[in-house]
Amino acid sequence: MHVPDGFLDPTTSAATAAVAAAGVALALRGARRELDERTAPMAGLTAAFVFAVQMMNFPVAAGTSGHLIGGALTAILVGPWTAVLCMTVVLLVQAVVFADGGLTALGTNVTLMALVAVAVGYAVFRVLVVLLPRTRVGLLVAAGVGAFLSVPVAALAFVGLFSLGGVADVALGTVAATMGGVHLLIGLGEAAISVAVLSAVLTVRPDLVRGARHLQRDVVLAPRPPAAHPVPVADAS
């Protein structure tokens, strides 16, 4: 859903650019807590992977396609603040090098796909991780629902911006219905890809999934030695 130049008026574009800049500034601070020697290369890889998979448009309905956004997936893999930075780099390269998404719309696209999609996807994921069983399946369901919801919410956020600063005069209700509907379908693809990728990484290297740390901790604590209950020994003498 890369927004081109021209859809939104200059005021709205400037406002979203300010929101995007503030979000990225916060993320530059927050990401320092998430990144260390091991996770930094993972973040670079995740961004490159998201760029690649975003090229894979899949058909969703007659004459319409969609592609992964990757905000939820990235946040679960490397942490939400780092995800904002990764998504911003992807969108920046797409806009500047590949003319995908407008230059004046870069702030809008960062707001929608690096801030809204990451925040919604990760927040839903965290809530469901707490509510669902602490298992691999529970984690994947939480990730899938978060990824799924991030897409229509980002699409409706665009409609919200369009209602404030859309250049064209069109019926907003029907635009919202069309955008929401088609992005529900694209969200299903987003969920499928995100769950498949997370499942693969969890199989090979579960220690590299930041959002799965609660599962790792269980594994470490599980083999508690029986010597922690010394009562029978004390009775013997």
Binding site: L28, E37, A40, G44, A47, C86, V89, V93
Partner: peptide, 15 residues
Amino acid sequence: VVLALAGGLTLVLRR
């Protein structure tokens, strides 16, 4: 290009 930029940025920011 994305790998270089994102990897470079996160390497600079890492602990």
